[in-house]
Design a binder for these strands. Structure first.
Lengths: 204, 204
DNA sequence: AATAGAAGCGGACCGCGGTCCGGTTATGTC
DNA sequence: GACATAACCGGACCGCGGTCCGCTTCTATT
């Protein structure tokens, strides 16, 4: 027996058992209710297990750790965000010129990150990679737009340079400690993006 | 360049008791030894208290929490960094044109952040504000250089935009997950800085 | 329906960060 | 040098995230 039979077969996982599915939904639902009523900090693994009528081990089995659970809770809003980028109305969705799409994307990401700030912080470092998957979409989209804009330079690095100031800890510091307004930060990001992208191509 | 927030502003607090001073040094020394021998993760509050021959409560009293202790351990290298920026040789220190100083600063900060990556992560969120004080110096310096470069726009925001991609979690992701080299990241940051600052003023 | 076996379950258990308070010790004053 | 007081000390205690392993329950097979 060689080892590669143990490798995960990506397409065809053995079907989820019915009790497992039920418990998974119960946990997610209980966690969401806890957040709505008492905030993210109240989402203790014990509390959510208890509220879901489930053992603690079950929660960890399904979600790996607290960050993983949080990442799953983010999935819904993240999917909506991705949908409006991929197939929503311009300028966020397709149809607008790349520069406008980029600016709209930055503003949208800023608002989205602020809306889910607590959850995002709690989800950072999820081993499951969920959190990274969400980031990966964002980065890929920005790279795509930068490519369309013929911006030159190291596109992946420029993409992270544009995204880094939108990370929650940095936004938090600007809002809380340095007392900046969201509008100011948003306008500042637009300025940054324009500097990075450079002046509009004249002939086009 | 007035506003610099230098590291230990040893004001005139009611004098520290001798036993307290001894214990403080013992704790810092023990923590440093633990890091050198077993890495940052081994610096448990119990372990460091034990190694220092001190009660756990004492450690918390002096440093607030684990992040505060880590921040103090960073003080030495941070002070050295600040010294070479303020009074070291150019281009990092004074004497070089602002643009060169900015580029040198970015590279130096990048290296410094990577060198102390574990410690910086463990120190993030220190309630004592130590960690923020260190950041504040960095931000102030970049703002100062941007001001000298007559860069226009919202200088504080541009400064954080330049510093955000140098934060440890982002560097970690680029190095570990996306397999970028330090040189590539460093060159990319230089490109970013040049785009933000804009072309050199011709007459000057 | 009976069975085999795996996937799932759950709660006891651990280590860590952080708190608290009764006892101890250093320091200024007489 | 003795005293008063405030600062300091230390370890017992708590809650939380995370692990582990014996037991239960579902599902596929006959």
């Amino acid at each position: 027996m060689t080892d590669y039979e143990l490798l995960p077969i990506l397409g065809q996982q053995p079907r989820e058992r019915s009790d497992a599915a039920r418990n998974r939904d119960a946990v997610l639902c209980a966690a969401q209710q806890l957040i709505d009523r008492c905030g993210v900090d109240a989402v203790t693994m014990d509390a959510v297990a208890d509220a879901a009528g489930v053992g603690k081990g079950t929660v960890f089995r399904r979600f790996g750790n607290r960050a993983g659970l949080m990442a799953r809770l983010l999935d819904e809003s993240e999917a909506a965000f991705q949908a409006s980028v991929i197939s929503g109305p311009p300028p966020l969705g397709p149809g607008a010129p790349p520069r406008e799409r980029l600016l709209a994307f930055g503003r949208a990401r800023l608002v989205s990150n602020l809306t889910n700030a607590d959850l995002l912080l709690a989800a950072s470092g999820a081993d499951t990679g969920r959190s990274y998957a969400a980031y990966s979409f964002t980065a890929t989209h920005v790279r795509y737009l930068l490519g369309q804009l013929d911006v030159g330079g190291d596109v992946p690095l420029l993409a992270t340079a544009l995204l880094a100031p939108l990370e929650v800890p940095i936004l938090r510091q600007q809002l809380t400690i340095e007392k900046m307004s969201v509008e100011r930060i948003s306008d500042g990001w637009e300025d940054l993006a324009n500097r990075v992208v450079g002046p509009p191509a004249p002939g086009r």
